[in-house]
Write a protein that binds this DNA or RNA. Structure first.
Lengths: 208, 208
DNA sequence: TAGATTGTTAATCGATTAACAATC
DNA sequence: TAGATTGTTAATCGATTAACAATC
Protein backbone atom coordinates (compact mmCIF):
# COMPACT_ATOMS: atom_id res chain seq x y z
CA UNK A 1 0.00 0.00 0.00
CA UNK A 2 1.21 3.46 -0.91
CA UNK A 3 4.97 3.74 -1.29
CA UNK A 4 6.89 0.62 -0.54
CA UNK A 5 7.58 -0.18 3.04
CA UNK A 6 11.26 -0.57 2.30
CA UNK A 7 11.74 2.99 1.13
CA UNK A 8 9.95 4.37 4.17
CA UNK A 9 12.13 2.22 6.36
CA UNK A 10 15.21 3.67 4.74
CA UNK A 11 13.93 7.21 5.16
CA UNK A 12 13.57 6.56 8.86
CA UNK A 13 17.10 5.24 8.93
CA UNK A 14 18.45 8.31 7.18
CA UNK A 15 16.68 10.42 9.73
CA UNK A 16 18.08 8.43 12.60
CA UNK A 17 21.61 8.72 11.29
CA UNK A 18 21.20 12.45 10.70
CA UNK A 19 20.07 13.04 14.24
CA UNK A 20 23.14 11.31 15.54
CA UNK A 21 25.35 13.23 13.12
CA UNK A 22 23.75 16.48 14.23
CA UNK A 23 24.39 15.67 17.85
CA UNK A 24 28.11 15.48 17.16
CA UNK A 25 28.14 18.77 15.30
CA UNK A 26 28.06 17.76 11.64
CA UNK A 27 26.52 20.39 9.36
CA UNK A 28 26.65 18.86 5.88
CA UNK A 29 26.25 15.40 4.47
CA UNK A 30 26.58 13.84 1.02
CA UNK A 31 24.58 11.01 -0.45
CA UNK A 32 27.76 9.07 -0.05
CA UNK A 33 27.87 9.76 3.69
CA UNK A 34 24.39 8.36 4.15
CA UNK A 35 25.08 5.39 1.92
CA UNK A 36 28.12 4.50 3.95
CA UNK A 37 26.23 4.79 7.21
CA UNK A 38 23.46 2.49 6.08
CA UNK A 39 25.51 0.07 4.05
CA UNK A 40 23.71 1.24 0.93
CA UNK A 41 24.79 3.17 -2.17
CA UNK A 42 24.86 6.87 -2.98
CA UNK A 43 22.60 6.32 -5.97
CA UNK A 44 20.06 4.56 -3.82
CA UNK A 45 20.04 7.45 -1.39
CA UNK A 46 19.55 10.10 -4.09
CA UNK A 47 16.89 7.99 -5.76
CA UNK A 48 14.98 7.70 -2.50
CA UNK A 49 15.15 11.45 -1.97
CA UNK A 50 14.20 12.14 -5.56
CA UNK A 51 11.08 10.02 -5.17
CA UNK A 52 9.90 12.27 -2.38
CA UNK A 53 11.05 15.56 -3.84
CA UNK A 54 13.85 16.06 -1.38
CA UNK A 55 16.68 18.03 -2.97
CA UNK A 56 20.19 19.00 -2.02
CA UNK A 57 22.84 21.23 -3.52
CA UNK A 58 24.91 20.13 -6.43
CA UNK A 59 28.51 20.10 -5.42
CA UNK A 60 27.70 20.81 -1.79
CA UNK A 61 25.59 17.85 -0.76
CA UNK A 62 22.81 18.37 1.75
CA UNK A 63 22.54 20.77 4.63
CA UNK A 64 21.93 18.53 7.59
CA UNK A 65 19.28 20.70 9.19
CA UNK A 66 17.32 21.16 5.98
CA UNK A 67 17.47 17.49 5.14
CA UNK A 68 16.40 16.54 8.62
CA UNK A 69 13.43 18.85 8.58
CA UNK A 70 12.37 17.67 5.14
CA UNK A 71 12.50 14.08 6.28
CA UNK A 72 10.65 14.84 9.47
CA UNK A 73 7.99 16.68 7.55
CA UNK A 74 7.58 13.69 5.31
CA UNK A 75 7.62 11.08 8.03
CA UNK A 76 5.36 13.21 10.17
CA UNK A 77 7.41 12.83 13.27
CA UNK A 78 6.58 16.07 14.93
CA UNK A 79 3.44 14.93 16.64
CA UNK A 80 3.33 12.34 19.38
CA UNK A 81 2.17 8.87 18.55
CA UNK A 82 0.23 7.03 21.22
CA UNK A 83 0.18 3.27 21.12
CA UNK A 84 -1.16 0.39 23.16
CA UNK A 85 0.26 -3.10 23.56
CA UNK A 86 -1.92 -6.18 23.75
CA UNK A 87 -0.21 -8.82 25.83
CA UNK A 88 1.90 -8.12 28.91
CA UNK A 89 4.17 -11.13 28.64
CA UNK A 90 7.93 -10.85 28.38
CA UNK A 91 7.89 -9.22 24.99
CA UNK A 92 5.16 -6.77 25.88
CA UNK A 93 7.01 -5.77 29.00
CA UNK A 94 10.32 -5.46 27.19
CA UNK A 95 8.69 -3.05 24.76
CA UNK A 96 7.05 -1.21 27.63
CA UNK A 97 10.38 -0.64 29.31
CA UNK A 98 12.30 0.13 26.16
CA UNK A 99 13.06 3.82 26.41
CA UNK A 100 14.14 4.23 22.80
CA UNK A 101 10.50 4.79 21.89
CA UNK A 102 9.88 7.74 24.12
CA UNK A 103 12.52 9.96 22.68
CA UNK A 104 11.13 9.38 19.19
CA UNK A 105 7.68 10.56 20.12
CA UNK A 106 6.21 7.11 20.53
CA UNK A 107 4.32 6.82 23.78
CA UNK A 108 3.05 3.52 25.07
CA UNK A 109 -0.06 4.56 26.95
CA UNK A 110 -1.26 1.17 28.19
CA UNK A 111 -0.79 -2.58 28.05
CA UNK A 112 -3.63 -5.08 28.18
CA UNK A 113 -3.66 -8.63 29.45
CA UNK A 114 -6.33 -11.12 30.40
CA UNK A 115 -4.27 -12.57 33.22
CA UNK A 116 -5.45 -10.85 36.44
CA UNK A 117 -2.04 -11.46 37.99
CA UNK A 118 -0.41 -9.26 35.36
CA UNK A 119 -2.89 -6.45 35.65
CA UNK A 120 -1.40 -3.46 37.42
CA UNK A 121 -3.26 -0.18 37.26
CA UNK A 122 -0.54 1.61 39.18
CA UNK A 123 2.35 0.84 36.84
CA UNK A 124 3.47 3.30 34.23
CA UNK A 125 2.16 2.62 31.68
CA UNK A 126 -0.71 0.77 33.35
CA UNK A 127 -1.46 -2.87 32.59
CA UNK A 128 -5.21 -3.16 32.23
CA UNK A 129 -7.62 -6.07 31.77
CA UNK A 130 -8.61 -6.87 28.19
CA UNK A 131 -12.20 -5.90 28.93
CA UNK A 132 -11.16 -2.29 29.11
CA UNK A 133 -9.35 -2.28 25.76
CA UNK A 134 -12.29 -1.34 23.57
CA UNK A 135 -13.37 1.57 25.69
CA UNK A 136 -9.80 2.76 26.23
CA UNK A 137 -9.02 2.91 22.52
CA UNK A 138 -12.15 4.87 21.80
CA UNK A 139 -11.74 7.31 24.64
CA UNK A 140 -8.06 8.00 23.98
CA UNK A 141 -8.32 7.92 20.20
CA UNK A 142 -5.52 5.38 19.79
CA UNK A 143 -4.91 4.21 16.25
CA UNK A 144 -1.76 2.14 16.57
CA UNK A 145 -1.36 -1.13 18.43
CA UNK A 146 1.11 -3.91 19.08
CA UNK A 147 0.01 -7.54 19.20
CA UNK A 148 2.16 -9.48 21.61
CA UNK A 149 -0.33 -12.18 22.60
CA UNK A 150 -0.04 -15.93 21.88
CA UNK A 151 -0.81 -16.91 18.30
CA UNK A 152 -4.14 -18.55 19.08
CA UNK A 153 -5.44 -15.32 20.58
CA UNK A 154 -4.04 -13.00 17.94
CA UNK A 155 -6.83 -12.95 15.36
CA UNK A 156 -9.48 -12.35 17.98
CA UNK A 157 -7.38 -9.56 19.45
CA UNK A 158 -6.94 -7.98 16.07
CA UNK A 159 -10.66 -8.12 15.36
CA UNK A 160 -11.32 -6.37 18.63
CA UNK A 161 -8.73 -3.71 17.92
CA UNK A 162 -10.11 -3.03 14.48
CA UNK A 163 -13.59 -2.75 15.87
CA UNK A 164 -12.35 -0.30 18.45
CA UNK A 165 -10.78 1.95 15.86
CA UNK A 166 -7.14 0.90 15.56
CA UNK A 167 -5.74 1.53 12.06
CA UNK A 168 -2.53 -0.48 12.05
CA UNK A 169 -0.58 -2.94 14.16
CA UNK A 170 2.86 -4.32 14.68
CA UNK A 171 2.22 -8.04 15.03
CA UNK A 172 4.53 -10.42 16.85
CA UNK A 173 2.15 -13.39 16.73
CA UNK A 174 3.51 -16.02 14.34
CA UNK A 175 0.40 -16.26 12.21
CA UNK A 176 -1.04 -14.60 9.15
CA UNK A 177 -3.83 -12.33 10.33
CA UNK A 178 -6.90 -11.39 8.30
CA UNK A 179 -7.86 -7.75 8.10
CA UNK A 180 -9.61 -5.23 5.86
CA UNK A 181 -7.73 -3.92 2.82
CA UNK A 182 -7.08 -0.50 4.28
CA UNK A 183 -5.68 -1.84 7.52
CA UNK A 184 -1.90 -1.97 7.90
CA UNK A 185 -0.14 -4.91 9.49
CA UNK A 186 3.58 -5.21 9.97
CA UNK A 187 4.49 -8.79 10.90
CA UNK A 188 7.56 -9.69 12.91
CA UNK A 189 8.23 -13.29 13.76
CA UNK A 190 11.28 -13.36 15.98
CA UNK A 191 11.74 -17.09 15.95
CA UNK A 192 11.60 -17.15 12.16
CA UNK A 193 14.16 -14.40 11.96
CA UNK A 194 16.44 -16.37 14.20
CA UNK A 195 15.92 -19.59 12.29
CA UNK A 196 16.70 -17.77 9.08
CA UNK A 197 20.09 -16.77 10.43
CA UNK A 198 20.65 -20.35 11.52
CA UNK A 199 19.88 -21.52 8.01
CA UNK A 200 22.30 -19.16 6.35
CA UNK A 201 25.24 -19.99 8.54
CA UNK A 202 24.78 -23.70 8.06
CA UNK A 203 27.51 -25.49 6.12
CA UNK A 204 25.92 -25.94 2.71
CA UNK A 205 25.54 -29.24 0.97
CA UNK A 206 25.10 -27.59 -2.39
CA UNK A 207 25.23 -24.08 -3.68
CA UNK A 208 22.57 -22.54 -5.86
CA UNK B 1 23.99 -14.52 -0.08
CA UNK B 2 22.78 -17.86 -1.40
CA UNK B 3 19.04 -18.05 -1.97
CA UNK B 4 17.09 -15.01 -1.03
CA UNK B 5 16.21 -14.55 2.58
CA UNK B 6 12.59 -14.06 1.69
CA UNK B 7 12.15 -17.50 0.18
CA UNK B 8 13.80 -19.17 3.15
CA UNK B 9 11.52 -17.23 5.43
CA UNK B 10 8.52 -18.52 3.54
CA UNK B 11 9.78 -22.08 3.66
CA UNK B 12 9.96 -21.78 7.44
CA UNK B 13 6.43 -20.46 7.46
CA UNK B 14 5.18 -23.36 5.37
CA UNK B 15 6.83 -25.71 7.79
CA UNK B 16 5.29 -24.00 10.75
CA UNK B 17 1.83 -24.15 9.27
CA UNK B 18 2.26 -27.81 8.34
CA UNK B 19 3.24 -28.73 11.87
CA UNK B 20 0.09 -27.13 13.17
CA UNK B 21 -1.99 -28.80 10.48
CA UNK B 22 -0.46 -32.14 11.34
CA UNK B 23 -1.28 -31.68 14.98
CA UNK B 24 -4.97 -31.43 14.14
CA UNK B 25 -4.90 -34.53 11.99
CA UNK B 26 -4.64 -33.17 8.45
CA UNK B 27 -2.98 -35.56 6.00
CA UNK B 28 -2.94 -33.70 2.68
CA UNK B 29 -2.49 -30.12 1.64
CA UNK B 30 -2.67 -28.25 -1.66
CA UNK B 31 -0.59 -25.30 -2.78
CA UNK B 32 -3.81 -23.39 -2.33
CA UNK B 33 -4.07 -24.43 1.33
CA UNK B 34 -0.62 -23.09 2.08
CA UNK B 35 -1.19 -19.92 0.11
CA UNK B 36 -4.34 -19.22 2.07
CA UNK B 37 -2.60 -19.83 5.37
CA UNK B 38 0.22 -17.43 4.59
CA UNK B 39 -1.75 -14.81 2.71
CA UNK B 40 0.21 -15.69 -0.41
CA UNK B 41 -0.73 -17.32 -3.74
CA UNK B 42 -0.75 -20.92 -4.89
CA UNK B 43 1.63 -20.08 -7.72
CA UNK B 44 4.08 -18.55 -5.29
CA UNK B 45 3.99 -21.68 -3.14
CA UNK B 46 4.60 -24.04 -6.05
CA UNK B 47 7.32 -21.79 -7.38
CA UNK B 48 9.09 -21.83 -4.04
CA UNK B 49 8.90 -25.61 -3.88
CA UNK B 50 10.00 -25.95 -7.46
CA UNK B 51 13.12 -23.89 -6.73
CA UNK B 52 14.17 -26.40 -4.13
CA UNK B 53 13.09 -29.52 -5.94
CA UNK B 54 10.16 -30.25 -3.69
CA UNK B 55 7.42 -32.06 -5.58
CA UNK B 56 3.87 -33.11 -4.87
CA UNK B 57 1.29 -35.17 -6.70
CA UNK B 58 -0.64 -33.78 -9.59
CA UNK B 59 -4.30 -33.84 -8.76
CA UNK B 60 -3.64 -34.89 -5.17
CA UNK B 61 -1.58 -32.07 -3.76
CA UNK B 62 1.07 -32.83 -1.20
CA UNK B 63 1.22 -35.52 1.45
CA UNK B 64 1.68 -33.57 4.62
CA UNK B 65 4.26 -35.89 6.13
CA UNK B 66 6.37 -36.03 2.99
CA UNK B 67 6.25 -32.31 2.52
CA UNK B 68 7.15 -31.69 6.10
CA UNK B 69 10.13 -33.99 5.99
CA UNK B 70 11.37 -32.50 2.73
CA UNK B 71 11.16 -29.03 4.21
CA UNK B 72 12.86 -30.10 7.40
CA UNK B 73 15.61 -31.77 5.43
CA UNK B 74 16.12 -28.56 3.51
CA UNK B 75 15.95 -26.25 6.47
CA UNK B 76 18.08 -28.57 8.51
CA UNK B 77 15.89 -28.47 11.53
CA UNK B 78 16.64 -31.84 12.91
CA UNK B 79 19.71 -30.87 14.86
CA UNK B 80 19.67 -28.56 17.84
CA UNK B 81 20.87 -25.02 17.42
CA UNK B 82 22.66 -23.47 20.33
CA UNK B 83 22.72 -19.71 20.61
CA UNK B 84 23.96 -17.04 22.97
CA UNK B 85 22.51 -13.61 23.64
CA UNK B 86 24.67 -10.56 24.23
CA UNK B 87 22.85 -8.14 26.46
CA UNK B 88 20.59 -9.14 29.36
CA UNK B 89 18.32 -6.11 29.26
CA UNK B 90 14.59 -6.33 28.77
CA UNK B 91 14.81 -7.63 25.26
CA UNK B 92 17.49 -10.17 26.05
CA UNK B 93 15.48 -11.46 28.96
CA UNK B 94 12.28 -11.57 26.96
CA UNK B 95 14.02 -13.75 24.39
CA UNK B 96 15.54 -15.85 27.16
CA UNK B 97 12.13 -16.58 28.61
CA UNK B 98 10.35 -17.05 25.30
CA UNK B 99 9.58 -20.74 25.16
CA UNK B 100 8.69 -20.79 21.50
CA UNK B 101 12.37 -21.26 20.72
CA UNK B 102 12.90 -24.41 22.68
CA UNK B 103 10.32 -26.47 20.90
CA UNK B 104 11.89 -25.57 17.57
CA UNK B 105 15.28 -26.85 18.56
CA UNK B 106 16.73 -23.46 19.36
CA UNK B 107 18.44 -23.48 22.70
CA UNK B 108 19.66 -20.32 24.37
CA UNK B 109 22.67 -21.55 26.29
CA UNK B 110 23.79 -18.31 27.90
CA UNK B 111 23.33 -14.56 28.10
CA UNK B 112 26.15 -12.09 28.61
CA UNK B 113 26.11 -8.68 30.22
CA UNK B 114 28.71 -6.28 31.53
CA UNK B 115 26.51 -5.12 34.38
CA UNK B 116 27.53 -7.15 37.47
CA UNK B 117 24.06 -6.68 38.90
CA UNK B 118 22.56 -8.61 36.01
CA UNK B 119 25.02 -11.45 36.13
CA UNK B 120 23.46 -14.59 37.53
CA UNK B 121 25.32 -17.84 37.16
CA UNK B 122 22.49 -19.78 38.75
CA UNK B 123 19.73 -18.81 36.37
CA UNK B 124 18.76 -21.00 33.47
CA UNK B 125 20.20 -20.09 31.07
CA UNK B 126 22.98 -18.40 33.05
CA UNK B 127 23.76 -14.72 32.69
CA UNK B 128 27.52 -14.40 32.54
CA UNK B 129 29.94 -11.46 32.48
CA UNK B 130 31.12 -10.32 29.06
CA UNK B 131 34.67 -11.37 29.89
CA UNK B 132 33.62 -14.98 29.65
CA UNK B 133 32.00 -14.66 26.24
CA UNK B 134 35.04 -15.39 24.11
CA UNK B 135 36.01 -18.50 25.99
CA UNK B 136 32.42 -19.72 26.24
CA UNK B 137 31.83 -19.52 22.50
CA UNK B 138 34.99 -21.41 21.75
CA UNK B 139 34.44 -24.11 24.32
CA UNK B 140 30.80 -24.71 23.41
CA UNK B 141 31.25 -24.28 19.67
CA UNK B 142 28.49 -21.70 19.36
CA UNK B 143 28.06 -20.19 15.92
CA UNK B 144 24.89 -18.15 16.29
CA UNK B 145 24.39 -15.07 18.43
CA UNK B 146 21.89 -12.37 19.23
CA UNK B 147 22.96 -8.77 19.73
CA UNK B 148 20.69 -7.06 22.22
CA UNK B 149 23.12 -4.47 23.58
CA UNK B 150 22.87 -0.68 23.22
CA UNK B 151 23.82 0.65 19.80
CA UNK B 152 27.09 2.20 20.90
CA UNK B 153 28.32 -1.17 22.15
CA UNK B 154 27.08 -3.22 19.23
CA UNK B 155 29.99 -3.02 16.79
CA UNK B 156 32.49 -3.89 19.49
CA UNK B 157 30.35 -6.80 20.57
CA UNK B 158 30.06 -8.04 17.02
CA UNK B 159 33.83 -7.85 16.52
CA UNK B 160 34.32 -9.90 19.64
CA UNK B 161 31.77 -12.48 18.55
CA UNK B 162 33.34 -12.82 15.13
CA UNK B 163 36.74 -13.25 16.67
CA UNK B 164 35.36 -15.93 18.94
CA UNK B 165 33.94 -17.92 16.06
CA UNK B 166 30.31 -16.84 15.68
CA UNK B 167 29.10 -17.12 12.07
CA UNK B 168 25.89 -15.11 12.09
CA UNK B 169 23.82 -12.86 14.32
CA UNK B 170 20.37 -11.53 14.79
CA UNK B 171 21.00 -7.87 15.52
CA UNK B 172 18.58 -5.66 17.45
CA UNK B 173 20.94 -2.70 17.73
CA UNK B 174 19.71 0.17 15.54
CA UNK B 175 22.92 0.60 13.61
CA UNK B 176 24.52 -0.76 10.48
CA UNK B 177 27.24 -3.15 11.57
CA UNK B 178 30.42 -3.88 9.63
CA UNK B 179 31.41 -7.49 9.13
CA UNK B 180 33.27 -9.78 6.74
CA UNK B 181 31.54 -10.79 3.51
CA UNK B 182 30.83 -14.33 4.59
CA UNK B 183 29.27 -13.33 7.88
CA UNK B 184 25.48 -13.23 8.06
CA UNK B 185 23.63 -10.44 9.85
CA UNK B 186 19.89 -10.18 10.15
CA UNK B 187 18.93 -6.72 11.37
CA UNK B 188 15.76 -6.01 13.30
CA UNK B 189 15.03 -2.50 14.44
CA UNK B 190 11.88 -2.64 16.50
CA UNK B 191 11.41 1.08 16.80
CA UNK B 192 11.73 1.51 13.06
CA UNK B 193 9.19 -1.21 12.45
CA UNK B 194 6.80 0.55 14.75
CA UNK B 195 7.41 3.93 13.18
CA UNK B 196 6.79 2.42 9.77
CA UNK B 197 3.34 1.30 10.85
CA UNK B 198 2.70 4.77 12.26
CA UNK B 199 3.66 6.27 8.92
CA UNK B 200 1.34 4.08 6.91
CA UNK B 201 -1.72 4.69 9.03
CA UNK B 202 -1.27 8.44 8.93
CA UNK B 203 -3.93 10.40 7.04
CA UNK B 204 -2.19 11.17 3.75
CA UNK B 205 -1.67 14.61 2.36
CA UNK B 206 -1.07 13.30 -1.13
CA UNK B 207 -1.09 9.92 -2.75
CA UNK B 208 1.74 8.62 -4.88
C1' DT C 1 37.13 27.45 -14.47
C1' DA C 2 37.59 22.47 -13.09
C1' DG C 3 36.02 19.10 -10.21
C1' DA C 4 32.70 17.09 -7.44
C1' DT C 5 28.22 16.02 -6.56
C1' DT C 6 23.39 16.04 -7.53
C1' DG C 7 19.09 14.52 -9.97
C1' DT C 8 17.14 11.72 -13.45
C1' DT C 9 16.74 8.61 -17.29
C1' DA C 10 17.69 4.18 -19.02
C1' DA C 11 19.30 -0.51 -18.21
C1' DT C 12 19.49 -4.35 -15.35
C1' DC C 13 18.26 -7.44 -12.09
C1' DG C 14 15.31 -10.24 -9.33
C1' DA C 15 11.04 -11.55 -7.67
C1' DT C 16 6.15 -12.21 -8.46
C1' DT C 17 2.34 -13.42 -11.34
C1' DA C 18 -0.01 -15.32 -15.37
C1' DA C 19 -0.65 -18.87 -18.48
C1' DC C 20 -0.86 -23.38 -19.68
C1' DA C 21 0.75 -28.09 -20.80
C1' DA C 22 1.26 -32.31 -18.28
C1' DT C 23 -0.98 -35.73 -15.73
C1' DC C 24 -2.88 -38.17 -11.70
C1' DT D 1 -12.47 -40.35 -18.72
C1' DA D 2 -13.05 -35.49 -16.97
C1' DG D 3 -11.63 -32.35 -13.75
C1' DA D 4 -8.45 -30.60 -10.64
C1' DT D 5 -3.99 -29.65 -9.47
C1' DT D 6 0.91 -29.60 -10.24
C1' DG D 7 5.30 -27.88 -12.34
C1' DT D 8 7.37 -24.76 -15.42
C1' DT D 9 7.92 -21.32 -18.94
C1' DA D 10 7.06 -16.73 -20.25
C1' DA D 11 5.41 -12.12 -19.07
C1' DT D 12 5.09 -8.56 -15.87
C1' DC D 13 6.19 -5.80 -12.26
C1' DG D 14 9.01 -3.28 -9.13
C1' DA D 15 13.22 -2.17 -7.16
C1' DT D 16 18.13 -1.43 -7.69
C1' DT D 17 22.02 0.04 -10.26
C1' DA D 18 24.55 2.33 -13.99
C1' DA D 19 25.31 6.15 -16.71
C1' DC D 20 25.56 10.77 -17.45
C1' DA D 21 23.98 15.57 -18.17
C1' DA D 22 23.33 19.52 -15.26
C1' DT D 23 25.43 22.68 -12.30
C1' DC D 24 27.20 24.73 -8.00
Amino acid sequence: MKSAKQIILRLFQYREFLMRAKSIGIKNVYSDTLAEALGSTATQVRKDFSLFGITGNKRAGYKLDDLLSQLSELLGKNQKQKIIIAGAGNLGKALMQYDGFKKEGIEIVALFDNDPVKVNIESSPPILPIERLFEFIGKNKINLGVIAVPYFAAQQMLDLMILAGIKGVLNFAPISLKSPKDFFINDINLRLELETVAYFIKPLKQED
